[in-house]
Design a binder for these strands. Structure first.
Ligand SMILES: [Zn+2]
Ligand SMILES: [Zn+2]
Ligand SMILES: [Zn+2]
Ligand SMILES: [Zn+2]
Lengths: 135, 135
DNA sequence: TAAAACTATAAAGCTACTATAAGGTCAATA
DNA sequence: TATTGACCTTATAGTAGCTTTATAGTTTTA
């Protein structure tokens, strides 16, 4: 299987596959005589794993960590679970921060209607005066 | 006022100030004979404005846009209000996406306890098998 | 006077790709 | 046979918003 086929199979661009290889997330495949990469089914599984992790918002570093656990299958999986717990709390704190931000933005938006000049814009005034609620 | 004092006043690093100048967000200040930048109060206000915008999650491009409106104070402020509306909807869609992600992560987390080997980890199995709910 | 603290520029690093450039390989076609 | 087109290769730069590093000159302080 060449790189283009693998890319289409998993739904990724070819450059992304080379990038993962370069980052050490995908093992370097064999090459044909002409230098073309040749992939096996295992590479497909590895790449799909990476992509599903990315969809879950895991960083490449976190994925690398998960892969290192997979290489040691008889260890307890405590670290895997902890990694996910950490990630969940990251996501939750992002949500909290964005919700606070939304509140600020909505209240700022309420300080202006559409019938003013820039000079009198309640939004610009609100930002300039710095009367923003601290989070 | 030199760059270090301005930085301390606004709570920014000196490099950040130079960066904003380079990006065209802060007007280039006068220089002393030795080349040191000399800032006025206006620069302080401008920098504080940028920082408050950043706290509100506005991009440098959005800030630049706001500044261009400020340069034309007798235009109607419709564009300012629209910019904020757009930004609010960006933030809201981020929140929605993250909440969906959190759900997925929590359900994945529930598929494992702490007393397994990596081989049998419900989380790694869940990711590998790809039985993830589509968003 | 010499060290500490400050300033300057330029360039690289961070994340996770994406895009571009310049070129080699291969099968099918005119 | 020449050439088109689709595919592959590497290397390099761009994205956002800084932060870090390197190297060097200046001012302040001990
Ligand atoms: Zn994470
Ligand atoms: Zn307005
Ligand atoms: Zn925005
Ligand atoms: Zn587990």
């Amino acid at each position: 299987m060449r790189i283009g086929q693998l890319a289409q199979l998993v739904g990724v661009e070819t450059q992304t596959i080379r990038f993962y290889e370069q980052q050490g997330l995908l093992p370097p495949p064999d090459r044909q005589d002409n230098g073309y990469r040749v992939y096996t089914e295992k590479h497909g599984e590895g790449l799909a794993f990476i992509r599903r992790c990315r969809i879950l918002g895991l960083s490449l570093a976190e994925i690398h960590e998960l892969q290192s656990y997979q290489d040691d299958p008889h260890q307890p999986c405590t670290a895997v679970n902890a990694l996910l717990d950490d990630h969940i709390s990251h996501v939750r704190s992002q949500i909290t921060a964005l919700q606070a931000l939304e509140k600020q933005l909505v209240s700022l938006r309420a300080s202006c209607n559409d019938d003013r000049e820039v000079e009198a814009c309640g939004i610009l005034a609100g930002i300039s005066e710095g009367n923003m609620h601290q989070q």
